[in-house]
């Protein structure tokens, strides 16, 4: 039975037994691909309408599965579907600044009210565009569909084009949001595995979102959140996180201050070392979320992987699905 495959403004009828990759290629749509056997993940695409065939999702990270990413070479749908290339699925949406408050000496919390339906998983990021056309990406710290607003943590930078704009902007200021994107978020399902979240600076925003989402879905495994700061004054949301830990016995908040003192409420030292020291014994089941400074994310990702955490269980903000074909090992 022929089914209709839509992409962008066009659509094609697929032939019997034909994969999504073959159908698009036959119709002149160029899809990056390599192994044609569901392994290399070069042909990653996203289903934007209709069901994602299970067989086309084998080997993908659970966060990609939940976003209906599929491997085009393995994708044989028995229903009409719409598909998009990675990153092309989210559109632009107008929004207004609905509120803001200071979280510490250089971090501001911004609330946006989208004009229309906007949903994303807490921990994904969106691109914020102001009236001058300046665009910056920020992680979402809450569940916008549930709360009716979007919460972002903005680091105030000296001469920062966007942060300067946000600092001055009044309530009701119109902006544009694009997205969401990213696969650093909580996957619903069996909630008994241990979770470790580690971030520096405003890398706390997505982790705060992931932790609250996990708790909201009744996650029963231990959840440890580490927030790394240079000095004590760089920490933020301390009272909120301590309160969250009081209300949920399986949630642990571990602030880490590099230039800290002994016997304070935080741990003095390097967040990378502290994270490695608190990784649960059950490393192969542990899900690790890393956000913040790129050097920190890259280094800790590697250390944790070498320490026994499975590559498919490591989620970070920087990760975007590869689009280049694997030409070499």
């Amino acid at each position: 039975m022929a089914v209709r495959i839509s992409i962008g403004d066009t659509s094609f009828l697929s032939q019997d037994g034909e994969s999504l990759l073959d159908c698009l290629s036959r119709n002149g749509v160029s899809v990056p691909h390599s192994c044609r056997s569901g392994v290399c993940q070069s042909c990653l695409m996203q289903v934007t309408a209709g069901p994602a065939p299970e067989a086309a999702q084998i080997g993908l990270k659970p966060t990609l599965q939940q976003q209906k990413f599929v491997l085009a070479c393995q994708c044989k749908s028995d229903q009409d579907i719409s598909v998009a290339f990675p990153g092309a699925a989210g559109g632009d949406l107008p929004a207004v600044i609905a509120g803001k408050d200071r979280l510490n000496h250089n971090v501001l919390r911004l609330y946006l009210k989208p004009d229309g339906d906007f949903s994303c998983e807490p921990g994904q990021y969106l691109t914020l565009i102001n009236r001058d056309g300046v665009a910056r990406s920020y992680s979402v710290a809450n569940d916008p569909a549930r709360d009716g607003h979007i919460e972002l943590h903005i680091r105030l930078l000296k001469d920062g084009l966007m942060s300067g704009f946000i600092e001055k902007a009044g309530i009701g200021e119109p902006v544009t949001i694009r997205g969401p994107a990213g696969s650093c978020f909580y996957v619903r399902g069996d909630g008994a595995y241990p979770i470790v979240l580690a971030g520096t600076g405003t890398g706390l925003a997505p982790l705060y979102g992931v932790a609250r989402q996990a708790l909201a879905h009744g996650h029963t495994g231990e959840i440890r959140l580490l927030h790394g700061a240079l000095r004590e004054a760089d920490l933020y949301l301390v009272a909120e996180l301590q309160d969250l830990a009081l209300r949920h016995p399986n949630f642990h908040y571990i602030p880490c201050v590099l230039k800290g003192e002994a016997e304070r409420f935080y741990r003095a030292g390097n967040i990378e070392e502290i994270t490695m020291s608190i990784l649960p014994g059950d490393k192969s089941r542990t899900h690790l979320f890393l956000c913040g400074a790129p050097e920190f994310v890259t280094a800790l990702k590697r250390k944790a992987f070498l320490g026994g955490v499975a590559s498919k269980h490591i989620f970070s903000d920087a990760f975007l699905p590869t689009k280049s074909a694997p030409v070499a090992a």
Partner: peptide, 28 residues
């Protein structure tokens, strides 16, 4: 990047395991 490397290693292992692949002398 580790995630990208993992994908590349999967391609290499598939080839070495005698599986389907699109490696050519030129791409190597």
């Amino acid at each position: 990047d580790m995630d990208r490397q993992i994908a590349k290693q999967k391609g290499f292992l598939t080839m070495a395991f005698g599986g389907p692949n699109s490696y050519t002398g030129k791409s190597m």
